[in-house]
Simulated scan of single mutants.
Amino acid sequence: MPYDELADRLSTPLDPVRVGAFPDGSVDDYHRIRAGESSVDSREAFAAEITAGRDSFVRDHVATDAGGQSVNAARQAAALGDDVCLAGHLDHAVFDFDFETVSMGAPASVHVTLFDADDVMFVEESADLETWSFAELRAALGERLDTFLERDALCCTNWASVPGLGSAFDEIAARDPDGNVFCVDPGPISTAQAGDLLDALERLDGAYDTVLSVNEDEAGRLAETVDRGDADPTSAAALDAIRAAASAAGVVVHGVDAATATTPDGRVSVPTLETERTLTETGAGDRFSGGLARSLGAGWEWDVALAMGNACAGHYVSGQGTGGVAELRDRVLADRPR
């Protein structure tokens, strides 16, 4: 069982790997809403109140935190003791970390409405992110650019909100880096964006061992793009077609019940931890990708790397924040499937 192997590895500090993450960032405000004095705890209840004619709600602030997919992945790797460099849009006091950061502009603003089962996000995009290009990364890192591009694991995130990533992949490929793991977590892409993403990933072939990390909805859009929309997007056939189109080393779906990957050696599936959701699951998938990428960068087997991703996500969903080595070991021992 991969969780047994993972627990053994987490019994001592991990050998650090060099992790890089880019290019997004957001300031996330979490709220609950009320209809008068009554809490609104689900999307269905919210919709019912609106349908019934209510046009005013009370919003109660719960917390403000640093967010963004690359930020969350970087925080996860840093919590595991890795050597992390985050190149994001971090021009705000909330991004005060004890690992290396460089900022390329203003972050997005995200308002997360907390529901019991499935949160809703309202996003005010950052103009700096919308106009971002590889030139900003080059300017921010300067002489450290090549070292950044050749870290053991790179987490590249939020294709859905960063139009400049396509041309950035071309420029990265043209530099011909001696790359390692390049983990792409694209965010909530449309079907049109999915096709562009696959084309761009194919152009990185030879520079990196590319890994595409998506949730089930995103996997469905990718499957439609490769004419597998009528199949289970986590099936071997669908994931193999996506992997071939992207010229990727692996495609991973971090689902509700299991994390599933297709690789040149076949399909691997690891059930998720039996964890109760508490405050929010927003950001859990990013922590999955951070744990997955650093584990693959460390040379771990696919099943153990998937188990690590599940452990990182499960610990966060449990309401205990971003887990370190000892915390994740306790989580695995308590919540692994029996």
Results as ranks from 00 to 15, higher is better:
304 V>F: 01
26 S>I: 09
95 F>T: 10
199 D>Y: 08
197 L>H: 06
118 D>P: 04
123 V>Q: 07
234 T>E: 15
61 H>W: 09
318 S>A: 14
130 E>C: 13
24 D>M: 02
201 L>P: 00
97 F>T: 12
27 V>D: 00
93 A>I: 01
249 A>F: 05
284 A>P: 09
113 T>C: 05
159 W>C: 03
220 G>S: 15
71 V>T: 15
300 W>N: 06
218 E>R: 04
236 A>N: 07
241 A>K: 04
157 T>K: 03
51 T>E: 13
19 V>K: 01
304 V>K: 06
296 L>S: 02
295 S>R: 07
280 T>R: 09
336 R>S: 12
171 E>G: 02
144 R>I: 03
45 A>S: 13
188 P>D: 14
164 G>P: 14
208 Y>N: 06
153 A>K: 04
321 G>F: 11
135 A>R: 15
19 V>P: 03
98 D>S: 13
110 V>L: 04
135 A>K: 12
133 S>T: 15
110 V>K: 02
40 V>C: 05
37 E>G: 04
128 D>W: 00
207 A>H: 08
153 A>N: 02
147 T>L: 11
252 V>Q: 10
74 A>V: 02
201 L>V: 07
61 H>T: 06
311 A>S: 11
113 T>A: 08
25 G>N: 08
337 P>C: 10
85 C>I: 13
99 F>A: 05
155 C>W: 03
270 V>I: 11
239 L>A: 09
309 G>M: 08
43 R>E: 11
79 A>L: 05
31 H>G: 04
64 T>Q: 14
120 V>M: 15
222 L>N: 00
179 G>M: 06
36 G>N: 06
136 E>I: 02
322 T>H: 01
124 E>W: 07
162 V>M: 05
34 R>H: 14
138 R>Y: 00
54 R>P: 03
